[in-house]
Design a protein around this nucleic acid. Structure first.
Lengths: 237, 237
DNA sequence: CAGTGGTCTAGACCACCGA
DNA sequence: CGGTGGTCTAGACCACTGT
């Protein structure tokens, strides 16, 4: 019984991850292993199993039904999860692609510096992309990344999904603050989006954080005829 | 040890509620009773105390700090609370007003019926308003309410804040599904918003629910020069 | 050092469910 | 009835924190 905090936990983590995998592809409503079954399988106390399952229940992955068992939870209304453009498009059944227009190291201007919570002049990565879904142009995005958090990012080849790349570095944003408005397309936006200058575009400014670190700020202009943003607010019932 | 499910729990509930009260008015960062202290006070096992505290930690009321103790949690970033236009404007320090353009009983069309989760032809309340903040025109909104849920709503005089009126009836929305886009102002929108036809407007379609009941669906067109929508997504860190 | 939370054990009785 | 989750006990050792 060597308890090591450095490994984040121990037995209950083993049990939890075992169940998590079992449950990953399972149909909602199907039965999860019973607590006593897991006790036997892992040779562990029931309180330990319960501790493992508690986490999954809190996450909304499992449901406990007294007297019957533990089951894969039915999909609940979830408060707006933070998803990336790529994930968003895949969920809609579209193929996300992006074409890099700019990818270079720059010095942060005052606005970007404030948003990234760094000092003006600090190094940032500026990544400008034209993004498509099923070949159709959807938006143009200017993203700025805190260079200090992402050493060698530009050298490692630009990924398709920014959030995936951040996740690989343990910096996947878990929180975003969005400002949403509309405006008339600038000349630049219009030509990139292949719409008439002055026609409406949906503007999204995002500040994405991982924990307390601002990893990414971006400003995107969407073609409103091809993109509607969906947001859920409030407490899941 | 009389375990009664009908009372919702037992000892751990006692402990939990005791701590909850203690913590209610306490300053963030101040110490909560230690686990062993609660064990002594309630003559209960430590696992029971932990079970009680687990709930409060999950709720975000308490924070555990290994080796130091349990503390009243610092106010956390909260996932976008559902606020009404009126509340939103007040938070920004502006005076919300609205001018009713239409307020009448109608039969639900197919789109409204589906959104309200009722049948086409069912009675709905249609309320169209021009909304201002500090006298400045901000948006025009078409709202539809499920008449069955709100008997006599039209007769009771139209309130300033729809959400307040719904709250008075115990139907304050706690969940909303928003679809956000941009479009060119129609003739009607343009003349009401006092902008040029064809200029960009921010479109917000909202489906507001209280529990499982859809109480209100609306479609608003905002002047983008005077309104930016702010949204927080993800898990509070 | 003493105190804290983190983890774990090996049992126990209860209420509830389905067969 | 046997199996399930819900609750609870009375201990235990660990890693970490502050003094």
């Amino acid at each position: 019984m060597e308890a090591k905090r450095s490994e984040g936990g121990l037995k209950h983590v083993q049990v939890r991850e075992y169940v998590r995998e079992l449950v990953a592809g399972a149909a909602p409503g199907s039965a999860a292993p019973s607590e006593r079954e897991l006790v036997a399988r892992f040779g562990v106390a029931r309180m330990t199993v319960r501790q493992a399952l508690d986490v999954l229940v809190t996450e909304g992955l499992l449901e406990r039904v007294p007297g019957r068992g533990t089951f894969v939870a039915h999909p609940r209304r979830r408060v707006g999860r933070l998803s990336s453009y790529s994930e968003d498009m895949k969920v809609r059944g579209l193929l996300p692609e992006s074409q890099t227009l700019v990818a270079r190291r720059e010095q942060a201007g005052p606005g970007v510096a404030r948003a990234l919570d760094i000092s003006p002049g600090d190094a940032v990565i500026h990544w400008k992309r034209l993004r498509r879904a099923d070949q159709q142009i959807i938006c143009v995005e200017d993203a700025y990344l805190n260079e200090v958090l992402l050493p060698g990012f530009l050298q490692s080849g630009m990924p398709t999904s920014l959030y995936q790349a951040l996740e690989d570095r343990g910096l996947r944003p878990t929180w975003a603050e969005d400002a949403i408005s509309a405006s008339a397309a600038t000349e630049d936006e219009a030509s990139l989006l292949e719409i008439a200058p002055g026609s409406p575009v949906l503007q999204l400014s995002r500040r994405a954080l991982c924990g307390d670190k601002v990893v990414n700020v971006s400003r995107s202009a969407f073609r409103p005829d091809r993109f509607t943003m969906h947001v859920q607010l409030g407490e899941p019932s």
